[in-house]
């Protein structure tokens, strides 16, 4: 306390003001913009369209000005159904992936930070979970339980937990003895504070990139489960189930019934994967 003894308290420095150029930053991430669009469509689209279960005059009508994507075997409007289905698919995808992150990330971080028996145990459990083919595992559990939406979400989340656990663990491991973590220990910070303040923020980029991939993956699993008939059942609007329902008509030339929901899956999955890339490579 020698240098400050001169009485006059010097003005405390202020942080510089920075204009967030969010728009500019978004433009450099086109896939992000597309994803935003898809989410907006899922959120607000249904308000502008009719009931997805409403029956029309024609079954299996080809795409026209009346029915942009045509109608299906029940004479429902496919465009309306594809937009409505976006809600369910994205919601299941996001929630399942989010649950997986919430469980996997702290566990993985703790495993890496603690090490020892705790780490080994978690690793073995997640390895044995991952040893099963994902779809088969999901299939097994769904057939054992009754296939309701919450059950589907839980299952998709469960098969994704090991992914985050291992990802976070391997990202955290090099940080455990990083100098800045040691410095925080020198500042008298405890284990959990250090994890929360210094370790997790530094792995968030990797985890968020994976999150995006996993939402896509969750949507694919849901669609696949619906496709093989244990997921969502028609006529509930869901992309996988719609593809399943339309597949039979493909050979008769009524391609639109399966194609449009299929394209919706493709576009969403590609966009999410692209977003993951942008997170990884972005500034």
């Amino acid at each position: 306390m020698t240098a400050t003894a001169d009485g006059q308290a010097p003005a405390v420095s202020k942080p510089p003001r920075r204009r967030a150029r969010a728009a500019g930053r978004l433009l450099r991430r086109p896939a992000f913009v597309v994803l935003l669009l898809i989410v907006l469509i899922a959120l607000f689209g249904p308000f502008f369209l009719g009931d997805p279960l409403e029956l029309g005059p024609d079954t299996l009508a080809a795409p026209s000005m009346q029915n942009w994507f045509g109608t299906d075997q029940f004479s429902m409007d496919i465009f309306t159904r594809v937009v409505h289905a976006a809600r369910l698919d994205l919601l299941v995808g996001f929630i399942a992936a989010a649950l997986a992150v919430l469980a996997g990330m702290p566990l993985g971080a703790l495993a890496a930070y603690r090490g020892g028996a705790f780490d080994t145990l978690l690793l073995r459990v997640s390895e044995s979970l991952q040893a099963f083919p994902t779809l088969l595992l999901a299939l097994g559990i769904v057939t054992a339980l009754s296939p309701s939406i919450p059950v589907l979400v839980m299952i998709i989340a469960l098969v994704n937990v090991p992914v985050y656990l291992r990802l976070t663990r391997s990202a955290v491991q090099p940080l455990v003895n990083a100098d800045f973590v040691l410095a925080a220990r020198c500042a008298g910070k405890g284990q959990f504070t250090i994890l929360r303040r210094h370790v997790l923020p530094n792995v968030s980029e990797v985890v968020f990139a994976q999150f995006s991939v996993n939402v896509a993956w969750a949507i694919q699993i849901l669609a696949a489960l619906s496709f093989v008939g244990v997921g969502v059942k028609l006529p509930t609007p869901e992309w996988g189930a719609m593809v399943r329902g339309g597949a039979d008509y493909m050979i008769y030339g009524q391609w639109w019934v399966a194609l449009f929901p299929g394209l919706a899956i493709l576009a969403t999955v590609l966009t999410l994967n692209q977003v993951a890339d942008e997170i990884r490579h972005g500034s």
Partner: peptide, 24 residues
């Protein structure tokens, strides 16, 4: 020991590694 840490501190070899890259 955490309370005693104030008496013994450390300066690291590589200053860039000694600061959290995400934090100011």
């Amino acid at each position: 020991f955490r309370a005693l840490r104030r008496h013994i501190q450390m300066v690291f070899q590589d200053p860039l590694a000694a600061f959290d890259p995400r934090a100011t």
